[in-house]
Amino acid sequence: MKVFSRKYLLALAVAVWAMLSLALAQDPSPVGWVQAAEGEVLITSPGQTPRAAERNMPVYNRDEIATSQDASVQIVFMDDCLVSLGENSRMQLSHISFDQTAPQQALFDVDFLQGAFGVVSGRIAEENPEAFQVDSPLAFIGIRGTEFVSLVEAGQETHALFTGGPVLVTTAGQGDSSAVSNRERMCAKLAQARVVYADAHAILQRNGDFRRKSIVAALNQEAEDLMAAYGCPTP
């Protein structure tokens, strides 16, 4: 009886832990709301049944939003960014976070998978432009406070600036949406460089070679400047 109780308690604890993990993983805070929807617009959260979009409906990180023929939807995000989808379009909300008290830690990362998209950027692009990243199968798009429109079709994409600017469009690869972004590549390389430069600095300091140490210090400064320019996270 005693052994059974222990097993029962253990199973209960595991079940509670699993439920808590699931609840935390779902991140229940909305990152935006439907401002207008016409026609058949479906919002799908991972592992859940698609729900038909209607005005004021919240959207969450990792949701996929899809429109059918003759349908459209406009979403307003927590930083006041507006994104509209035309017919036969699909978009995924990869990660959006915005805390008004810490705008430098904000992130806006969405994937345009297919169709037509219009964007009027919000406070994230205004206050921390490097944190605003839109990905499409062929491009990474960075904007600095502006309105732009993208047409994403199989085999061709058109990205246009409408007002404000600038918009930076960078090739992603061969249409592979899972390609590592140039920013990530550069940040990884710069992180590696920091280690190399720190080692070099220590060796040259130990050997008293101040001339070469100053050269390494200059290289390190260049790397620091690039880290800032690419918006790399500080280790």
């Binding site: 994409e157 058109t158 990205h159 600036l161 469009v169 960078t170 550069m186």
Partner: peptide, 27 residues
Amino acid sequence: EIEALHAEIQASTVQLTVPGTATILTP
């Protein structure tokens, strides 16, 4: 290596600064 990567990224980036302009991408 950093300079080469930076140059590669610069070469694969187009900056739109004039409203009403667009860039086209193909695989």
